[in-house]
């Protein structure tokens, strides 16, 4: 128990990243089958909220995490790019499922499937599986939190850390 009159010394980066990684607000953004597993992760049995990541926002302007859950088609690709650009910095992307990683089972004849969402937005964590289990998504969220922890999160530096889209 820390006495109430004590002083904690830390860096600005540490405080910022502490706040960011423990209150990730994902965008309500389901594309296909994986979205059902994403919903299951947020629902009663798996409860994403435990990791400070359950406040699904319906608008990109309030979200800082985009979970691309499902097959990205060419018709949808430009919309995803728009949604990503509407999100305020700092923002992160989890690519959930084989389809958004590399086209999944639709890689061969999928004339209308984008083979990997990383062709349009930068991805931080790839989650394999078709569809990934909710535990896998939880692991991905924790991995992202680790990544945010080691990122230097001062505003000026942030831009240079992120690879350009």
């Amino acid at each position: 128990m820390i006495p109430s009159d004590s002083v904690v010394m830390t860096s600005v980066d540490e405080v910022l990243s502490w706040g960011r990684r423990n209150s990730l607000w994902p965008l309500t953004f389901g594309l296909a089958c994986c979205a059902i597993e994403m919903m299951a992760t947020g629902a009663s049995d798996y409860d994403l909220e435990r990791f400070g990541c359950g406040v699904f926002r319906a608008t990109p302007r309030q979200a800082d995490l985009m979970i691309v859950a499902g097959t990205v088609t060419l018709k949808m690709a430009s919309r995803i790019r728009t949604l990503y650009e509407q999100m305020p910095e700092p923002k992160w992307v989890i690519s959930m499922g084989s389809c958004s990683n590399k086209g999944g089972p639709y890689w061969h004849e999928g004339y209308h499937v984008l083979k990997g969402v990383d062709r349009i937005v930068p991805v931080d964590v790839y989650v394999p599986g078709c569809p990934p289990r909710p535990e896998t998504l939880l692991e991905a969220v924790m991995m992202l939190q680790k990544k945010i922890r080691v990122q230097e999160s001062s505003m000026g530096l942030l831009g240079s850390l992120r690879k350009p889209a």
């Binding site: 060419l74 086209g103 004849e109 004339y111 083979k115 062709r119």
Partner: peptide, 29 residues
């Protein structure tokens, strides 16, 4: 109805060739 309005060709025809690019995005893996 399914493909975008500016799509070229009719995909389920047997002689359909998948385009290399659509709106600047590469289509094949």
């Amino acid at each position: 109805i399914l493909c975008p309005e500016d799509w070229v060709g009719h995909p389920l025809r047997k002689d359909y060739q998948t385009p290399d690019y659509y709106n600047g995005m590469p289509v094949p893996l």
